[in-house]
């Protein structure tokens, strides 16, 4: 029982360390990109966007413990639904407002 418990804790700690390291790396890459100025602005924006997206997934996976396993299906569904709503709201707003701006311009 105690051994199981210790093993579980070790595994949990393992997960947190992986999460922390990847989060730091994913933050460092965009900073480095901007500060070293090795990439063209367009490429830089893509790098930052992708790093940000992966960062979100890392947070979900290692800190909020959302994965594809069955017991977390409910949480995952809620996150996907939130994502859908955010896309609808933000995307829709941008679409409608740029369209109006265009019509008035």
């Amino acid at each position: 029982m105690n051994d199981d418990h210790a093993a579980e804790r070790r595994q949990e700690l393992h997960g947190y360390i992986i999460g922390l390291v990847s989060a730091i790396l994913l933050s460092a890459i965009p900073f480095a990109g901007v500060m070293l100025g090795l990439l063209s602005p367009a490429a830089l924006i893509w790098v930052i966007a992708v790093a940000g997206l992966v960062q979100v997934i890392v947070h979900f996976r290692f800190f909020l413990h959302i994965d594809l396993s069955r017991s977390h299906r409910d949480d995952l569904q809620l996150i996907l639904f939130s994502l859908l709503i955010v896309v609808l709201m933000v995307g829709g707003t941008l679409w409608v407002l740029t369209n109006q701006r265009h019509m008035m311009g």
Partner: peptide, 21 residues
Amino acid sequence: AVLSFTVWLHHFFTMGQDGNV
């Protein structure tokens, strides 16, 4: 419930976006 998030613009059809929207 889901569709309710896709129709808000019908409250302001006359606000000046184009016909396709």
